[in-house]
């Protein structure tokens, strides 16, 4: 059980979100970096459904598992401080935001740490944009429209639809479960997608007929900088000094949007719509960032330089399949490691 001492830039609860409600104007929400969310959940529980290790299946049977997945904390940029009300296991993943305990012990991402009662976890800031913190069994939270994910813009999910603030208590679904401590994500086998230095892929379209004939080429050829306006609703891109933006996008008849859609507004500075973004938009979409690249979008932070490369949908699907396979391989290895440690402890299971 944790208490928020300071929320930092933005602290929210996220599960896998509420897809399928865009016809009501509800964005899917969910983790901005889905890879790291899954890693936090898998480390905390050894299983993607949050039902916990086999030994605790009987406990989880009492409480039905949330259809949107277990709830994790999404930490943004830094400044966040959390105090352990009781000793607990904390799974950490995502960007390395400089997490450490108040005694100076560094908390590396990709590992389950034991945090003693009274200790404080601080995120001083580091590289990347977001870190995820999971508790065994998931964090207890109320579902709104089928999900606990916080969507601040629409005041949905989390605690009263707002970002977490000082004094909020983050309680696990069940208490005192320390079995996962020490479990480590095999980063060499399944590295975070943001380790890649390749341009971020986008599938061109669907609104190319409303854009300049060489718009895709111009977007691809430029190097962009992530603007300060970079949040869960959208990521604005700006050209580097002395470089032109794209030709202005002109208003079109609005059509449904989805996360990853790269809109070209009137000032020619593209905006990548993201997980809490608008479900309908009126500027042309030059391309859509495919699912496998979302973890990298979730780790973009203001000031980062970024380039893009066109990719056909089929290649993007193949990349998605490889990413799922890597996640599965990492899970198997992390689970195997845990079994080995328990044997070494003579604990059995």
């Amino acid at each position: 059980m944790l208490e928020v001492v300071s929320p930092g830039a933005l602290l929210t609860l996220q599960d896998r979100g509420r897809p399928g409600l865009a016809h009501l104007g509800v964005p899917p929400s969910g983790p901005a970096d889905p890879w790291s969310y899954e890693v936090a959940i898998l480390l905390a529980d050894g299983r993607p459904d949050g039902a916990g290790d086999a030994s605790s299946a009987a406990v989880s049977a009492v409480r039905p598992v949330n259809g949107s997945g277990p709830v994790a904390l999404e930490v943004t940029l830094g400044g966040t401080r959390l105090r352990a009300i009781e000793t607990c296991a904390v799974a950490l993943s995502g960007g390395d935001l400089g997490a450490e305990l108040d005694d100076g012990t560094r908390l590396a991402p990709g590992r389950v740490h034991r945090v003693a009662a009274g200790a404080e976890i601080g995120f001083a800031g580091g590289t990347g944009m977001r870190a995820y913190l999971g508790l065994p069994g998931g964090i207890d939270a109320r579902l709104v429209l089928g999900s606990a994910s916080t969507c601040v813009a629409a005041a949905l999910g989390g605690i009263d639809g707002r970002p977490l603030r000082a004094g909020d208590v983050i309680a696990p679904v069940r208490r005192g479960h320390l079995d996962a401590v020490g479990r480590t994500w095999p980063a060499a086998l399944a590295p975070h997608p943001a380790r890649s230095v390749d341009p971020i892929a986008f599938v061109p379209g669907p609104d190319l007929r409303h854009l300049h004939g060489r718009a895709v080429e111009a977007f691809r050829a430029r190097s962009w900088r992530v603007a300060d306006a970079c949040d869960r609703m959208g990521i604005r891109l700006e050209p580097h000094d002395g470089v032109e933006a794209l030709a202005p996008g002109r208003e079109i008849l609005s059509h449904p949007m989805l996360p990853g859609a790269i809109q070209v507004p009137a000032d020619g500075r593209p905006v990548i719509l993201f997980v809490d973004g608008p479900t309908i938009g009126g500027y042309p979409v030059i391309g859509v960032v495919p699912r496998w690249e979302w973890p990298r979008l979730g780790q973009l932070r203001p000031g980062y330089g970024v380039r893009f490369a066109a990719q056909d949908a089929g290649s993007a699907r193949a990349a998605w399949d490889r990413q799922r396979a890597a996640l599965a391989a990492g899970t198997a290895r992390a689970g195997a490691d845990l079994v080995w440690e328990r044997l070494a402890d003579g604990a059995g299971w």
């Binding site: 599938v203 669907p206 059509h255 859509v288 495919p290 949908a313 993007a316 699907r317």
Partner: peptide, 29 residues
Amino acid sequence: IDQAGDAALIASLGDDLDIETSGWALRAA
């Protein structure tokens, strides 16, 4: 019909705003 990324398609019935076309889109959905 155009691709919208790797896991979605969008069917467009035109670029004009009129109640008939809107009705077709709603019925198809």
